[in-house]
Design a protein around this nucleic acid. Structure first.
Length: 199
DNA sequence: CGGCCGATCCACT
DNA sequence: GTGGATCGGCCGA
């Protein structure tokens, strides 16, 4: 059920962002399994995307991780406070990535509550990219680890989102990206499942 | 080196 | 709806 590297080598990062809806994101740190159903993603489409850290082919110590082969975690510090978790896609040297913006908690909720310093699992436990990382225990020092390993991984549990339940919008917080700020690269799934095909 | 600023969140009003 | 927190990355001098 764990997604194989083949999944991450897809050359269409926007498609991957959509396909990740309904998959399960897990971490296993400090003996605790935590995870949930991915409900919101954003695609960052490489060197021609002004919103991407890799725009213009920029390579720095930080962005270098995005040039890894698909199936790597790219985690960076935002606003000095938040670690934001991304899935690197496509082949080596093509810096595509999908930002995970929200999950629906399913595993290790007690652990996630403790990490988030909350007492009740309300709708804000893992909604927003900074809170997802905090709840799952992901830190920017972990940027570069493989999603085919046993610390952070994604599973396909045969959950099939209803396309009608998926909303597509521009990305959040990328006003600096000029015309690319308007691209429809954000996917939000309301949790509605596809009805079994009527025969 | 110095300075600006960000793929955000939360408390408060 | 608004503003403060908080610090590494990046760029220019």
């Amino acid at each position: 059920m764990k997604l194989k590297q083949r999944f991450y080598l897809n050359e269409d990062v926007v498609e991957v962002a959509r396909l990740l809806l309904g998959k399960y994101l897990f971490t296993f740190f400090d003996g605790a399994l935590t995870g949930g159903l991915i409900t919101e993603t954003e695609a960052y489409n490489g060197i021609h995307d002004r919103a991407s850290h890799a725009y213009g082919g920029r390579r720095t110590a930080r962005t270098e991780i995005m040039y890894n082969t698909g199936g790597t975690a790219y985690v960076y510090l935002c606003y000095g406070i938040h670690s934001l978790f991304n899935v690197v896609t496509n082949k080596e040297n093509v810096p595509h990535a999908v930002l995970i913006r929200a999950i629906r908690p399913s595993h290790g909720i007690e652990t996630m509550l403790k990490r988030r310093k909350k007492s009740n699992p309300d709708s804000n436990l893992t909604r927003g990219p900074g809170t997802v990382s905090e709840a799952l225990g992901i830190h920017y020092a972990q940027s570069g680890i493989a999603l085919t390993g046993n610390l952070i991984w994604i599973e396909d549990r045969k959950i099939i989102p209803d396309p009608e339940g998926i909303k597509v919008t521009p990305r959040i917080g990328v006003d600096y990206a000029g015309k690319d700020a308007a691209l429809p690269y954000r996917f939000i799934w309301n949790g509605q499942l596809l009805e079994k095909a009527k025969k």
